[in-house]
């Protein structure tokens, strides 16, 4: 600052560029926006269009050569029963994971928003933030250790003399398997664990805005805690819940690593995309599969927007 004061002249000479920019805020805006928009427009949107284009190509079943004439054949292939099965299984899993995440996240978010103060507020904040940011693969790996046959869960059940209960549970078709780490239940637990912080944060943000006096007033007017929850807390938390469910739903739809590491060989959309583009070399079908989550999320976001979910983000 002193440098400028020493310059002496009331209005020191300044380069024409700065003056021009100052007088033309639009020009400044264009200069600011051009690099990020060019990058995202070319790299990201360009890639998305490439993906969309690929889904209209088709593959020659015998030679494996990709035919670049536009066709809907690949989308027809998507509607085969085996592929519809994959889509249905993934959407069901995403829905179950979302419901479970809300159930586990709500008490944490409520406590953090309403009761935690000072030091405990920080503990809860970092307590959610560190697992959110710690390595995704390590988290999945941790559960592989926990759920393995000789791991801590099996050890716990044996120690309590309840080994038979775990075996009985694992023998249930549809949810069981050889051990928890190769069962659909295991896949479900890991999904809930890994996405849980994404659910806690928006619910907490929504609950922070609910004044405590509102809850007290409901109680003073004779509502039971259950009624207060149903008629006061839940409706006010709903935008946060929907915002969180966007994450849990979208992330489950696209994940291909968790079902591969902790789970059965049953395929999910993400795994199908990965395998079709990789080992099978059927990029058009992989692309068509990738369009499915985009469409589902598009519908989901439209509904969520109506429910006011974006105000809580």
């Amino acid at each position: 600052m002193t440098v400028m004061a020493d310059a002496g002249a009331p209005r020191p000479a300044r380069s024409g560029v700065s003056d021009a920019l100052w007088r033309h805020p639009r020009l400044m805006l264009v200069l600011l926006l051009a690099p990020p928009l060019l990058w995202l427009g070319i790299v990201y949107l360009g890639s998305l269009f490439a993906l969309l284009a690929q889904s209209f190509f088709s593959i020659d079943e015998f030679s494996g050569v990709i035919d670049r004439t536009p066709t809907l054949k690949t989308y027809g292939e998507l509607l085969r029963p085996a592929n519809l099965d994959i889509i249905w299984r993934t959407v069901l899993m995403a829905a179950l994971v979302t419901v479970a995440s809300v159930t586990v996240a709500f008490p944490i978010a409520y406590y953090a928003a309403r009761y935690a103060r000072g030091r405990w507020k920080a503990v809860f904040y970092l307590g959610v933030m560190l697992p959110l940011w710690s390595s995704y693969l390590v988290k999945v790996y941790a559960w592989k250790l926990i759920l393995a046959k000789e791991g801590i869960v099996g050890w716990g059940f044996e120690g309590l003399g309840l080994g038979w209960l775990l075996d009985a549970f694992l023998s249930v078709p549809g949810i069981g398997g050889n051990s928890l780490s190769v069962s659909p239940t295991g896949t479900f637990i890991v999904f809930v664990y890994v996405w849980l912080p994404y659910m806690i944060l928006p619910i907490q943000a929504a609950l922070e805005r609910v004044p405590g006096s509102l809850v007290e007033a409901s109680g003073d007017l004779g509502a039971s805690p259950g009624q207060t929850f149903r008629h006061v807390l839940w409706p006010l938390a709903l935008p946060g819940v929907v915002a969180g469910s966007i994450f849990t739903f979208s992330l489950t739809l696209g994940d291909y690593i968790i079902p591969q590491i902790v789970g059965t060989s049953a395929r999910f959309i993400g795994l199908a995309v990965y395998q079709y583009q990789g080992t099978a070399g059927n990029v058009p079908l992989a692309a068509a599969f990738a369009v499915v989550p985009i469409v589902i999320m598009g519908i989901y976001l439209a509904v969520a927007k109506r429910m006011g979910a974006f105000d809580a983000l």
Binding site: L37, L48, A50, L251, G254, V283, A286, P293
Partner: peptide, 28 residues
């Protein structure tokens, strides 16, 4: 639209971004 465009790469599942980039690399 600009803020949506910035958020999109992380709002859509990672596998979409991944396969989209891969398609673009292979086409180009």
């Amino acid at each position: 639209a600009v803020s949506l465009l910035v958020v999109l790469p992380i709002a859509l599942p990672g596998i979409i971004t991944g396969i989209a980039l891969r398609s673009a690399f292979s086409l180009a």
